[in-house]
Structures are given as C-alpha cells and as structure tokens.
Design a binder for these strands. Structure first.
Lengths: 161, 161
DNA sequence: ATTGAAACTTGCACTAC
DNA sequence: GTAGTGCAAGTTTCAAT
C-alpha cells in the first residue's frame, strides 16, 4: 500500500498523541476532521497502523531492571520454536533472530537483578538452548516509539534520510 | 507513587487500546467514566503514563531492516556523550549502556541493509567510538508494547510474578 | 454518582478534480 | 471514481454539583 504525505503526517501526529481528536490532527495536516477519520480508518484496515497504546514508565509499574540476552541454540532449532517458547515469558518484551554468533537476542524487563537472574535461569533450561550471554542495562539513553521518526520533518524519512 | 489494582487495570486497558473511551475502560475495570478519567489524569500527572502513541507497522513506513549494534568506546566516554551523539541519528530507536564487554547497545531501524551499513559507518566515525559489532535482525519473534504485561492477570505482575 | 453544556465522532449528501 | 467538505445526530468528555 502506498502512503502519501498526508498519511505520513497523520501517522506522525498519532504517534505523538494517539488521543488527539480528528479535528486537531486535521488542523495540523490541513484536512477536515472527516477526511482525517477516513484516512485513519483506511490506515488501520491496511495495517499501517496496528493499534493505539499508552506509553508507560516501566519504573512506575515496578519494572526497574532490563537486560539483553543472547541465545545460542541447538543446530536444528527453528525460529518458530524460539518464538513459541519466549511468548510464554511475560518478562521477554522483545525477541529476534539475528546474524552473528548468537542465534537470537532477547530484551527482558524485570523487577530487579534477582528477577532477571531467575528468568534467564528458566530460559537457559529450555531444551533447545545451549547457552546464554546476558548484559544488564545500566542506563537507557534513547527510547523512541516505533514510527516516531517516520514523517517528522525534523528527522529524515526512511526514503529521504 | 503507589498504584492499586484499578490503576493497573486502567493502564492495561490503555496499553491495549489508547483510544478507548472512559466509559469502555470503566466497564472493563468496574468504575464510572468520571472515576476513570480522574485516575487517568492522575496517572499522567504522576508520570506513570507518559503519553499515548499509535502502534505502527515499521514495514508500512519503509523501515524494512533492523539491527543491533554493540558499541565499544574510549575509556573516558560518559553515557551522556553517547546519548547526545545517538540522539542525532533518527535510525537509532533505542540505546542503552550495558554490562559486559561492550559499553552500549543500539537498536537501529533502517530501510535496508545498505542503509544500516551507512548508519553504522557514520556511528563508527564518532570520536569516542573505538569499534562496533553489529547483528542484523533476521526475523522479529516477539514485540510487546511497554507495560503490556503490567496488569494482565494472565501474566504475572512484576511484583506477583 | 449524576447532570448538563461543550466538544468529539461518524455517517451522509454534496462538490471538485 | 477518488478524495475532500460541511452538516447533523448520537456519544463522549469534563466540571460542577
């Protein structure tokens, strides 16, 4: 699906504030509220916008510690095996298979270092896991919502930048 | 600040759908719309909720490739130096200092592998960077919005789990 | 918790390219 | 035909009770 300037501007507005009214967005991008709504509906139908979410301060909910864990798996492990197993851990907030020595990289949120340790212990006990290599996050320096940059004229668009 | 059961339920509802009406949320958590609004206002004031954001499919915007990059820095590099430098790259969507051999881990979104390469080249040229070690993401297996788990009774809360 | 005024959403008729 | 505007009915917000 093709996104024009207006679509990108609307997405940018909604990434910045998902509760903005259609009239507000319309004012920003130069469209009527009705026109904005029609485009937002279309963007959701086509899957460009997958939903709307509150941004939460992990600390406020007690998630005080995060870690990245490299996973080294047995030779015939399939990505779907890893996906299925990791989906069972609420502490695993992101996971991806990657190039390089490790097979996958996990992003873990936990209450404290002890909690991280317990989770890694359980993950390391998964049948397909050979070993793990973990790094505790000391301080978060950057954390942008996905798409924050997409059509912010201050930053480059993926095509233009 | 202390969050009770209701606060956590409200946050969970807003993480799932940030555009839900107060009446809908109230129905879910067993509160009147007004009561929900008062709590949401308070949650924003106290910083537990930092905003509302559209969830976007990176692909739809042309961000087809992601990578993780470990940064090895000169001995006297401060986290704030890294933060300042990385904030200038729209492609760096997350960055954190970590324990282990590397000093920091970056999460990069780009249009394609060539784009990733160009960005890493520029980052590697930063004065404080000694070397980098990168992994391209092959496939994303898990990607939860922050707080998705916080008060979903199917998962553990950070305290209870 | 209820109420009422102001604002928002959303379908529809209409217009322009 | 595709995409925008304006309007009106039904909801939602939000402050005051």
């Amino acid at each position: 699906m093709e996104l024009d300037r207006l679509d990108r501007d609307i997405i940018a507005a909604l990434v910045e504030d998902a509760r903005a009214t259609y009239a507000e967005i319309g004012h920003d991008v130069g469209l009527s509220a009705s026109a904005v709504k029609r485009r937002v509906d279309r963007l959701r139908e086509t899957g460009a916008i997958t939903g709307f979410s509150a941004r939460v301060a992990p600390r406020a909910l007690g998630w005080n510690t995060e870690a990245y864990v490299e996973l080294f798996c047995q030779g015939k492990t399939k990505p779907s095996d890893i996906a299925l197993a990791m989906a069972r851990y609420p502490e695993v907030v992101a996971a991806a298979t990657i190039t390089g020595e490790a097979d996958a990289l996990l992003h873990i949120r936990a209450t404290d270092v002890r909690h991280v340790e317990r989770v890694i212990e359980r993950i390391a006990a998964e049948t397909f896991v050979v070993r793990t290599k973990s790094s505790i996050v000391l301080s978060r320096l950057v954390d942008l919502p996905t798409g924050a940059v997409a059509s912010d004229p201050r930053n480059g668009s993926p095509v233009g930048g």
